[in-house]
Write a protein that binds this DNA or RNA. Sequence first.
DNA 1: TCTAATATCAGTAATCGTTACTATTATTGT
DNA 2: ACAATAATAGTAACGATTACTGATATTAGA
Lengths: 129, 129
Amino acid sequence: MNLKYSKQREAIKAFLMSRKDHPTADQIYTAVREDHPNISLGTVYRNLALLEEVGEIQRLHVNGNTDRFDADVSNHYHFVCDSCSCVQDIPMEMQVSLSAEAQKHFNGVIDYYNACFHGRCSDCKELQY
Amino acid sequence: MNLKYSKQREAIKAFLMSRKDHPTADQIYTAVREDHPNISLGTVYRNLALLEEVGEIQRLHVNGNTDRFDADVSNHYHFVCDSCSCVQDIPMEMQVSLSAEAQKHFNGVIDYYNACFHGRCSDCKELQY
DNA sequence: TCTAATATCAGTAATCGTTACTATTATTGT
DNA sequence: ACAATAATAGTAACGATTACTGATATTAGA
């Protein structure tokens, strides 16, 4: 793949690195537009796909409909609040033993896994459903 | 919620119970249409949402874009093949200790988690990428 | 520093999965 | 059998994403 520099791509990457909440493409678009008012939504999507392909960011599928993006490319645990739908990291070592255990019960080859915890975030834990 | 019987809903549920590969709404639509040629895609979506709400099926978000459906409503592990994209169950006890461990590193309340293993299914494990 | 090759862009149209709407049909309690 | 109303088929609309297109920006080489 033959990449050329672009300030739009740089702005997208920089914004993503500044955030820990794994924004959606549209949130990135809105944010980056403050410095680049003419940036197109298509440009955001294309660059997110490019950055993912190059391995500089990762795409998360934490809740179905809209993809989220993360500048931390390590495989780590996530949390989704069932009340406010916010997404956060869980700062905890990946337990690779779970893959090993699953392998005992599976006929193919298991390389890794993703896990997403659910419940109430610290802001929502006092609220009623 | 006040449900009335419908043969379409029954057909959807019956089909889903006969399958272990967690089909998409469109796959369900195509399959059920063999016995109910006039069924509408909207009817499939509406009944899947109803069945989910009533707790007779569950919706899976294993890989971003399209939802999958599972007549087994227990929380269990899934596997997605990175080669053919097939989805399977991993017949293994849920390790709730993972939630307990995550809770130590998280300020909110963790109720449960979903995990999705990745790798090569038994049909694909010999293939090259 | 100019130039040619080409990656990237903004803007817009198109696609895909899903949901909403509407007039008609089916189910169900009385 | 009937009235109330849930469910339907068909279609339009929606939100997220991708594809297209002619113009612009980057970059390597002369």
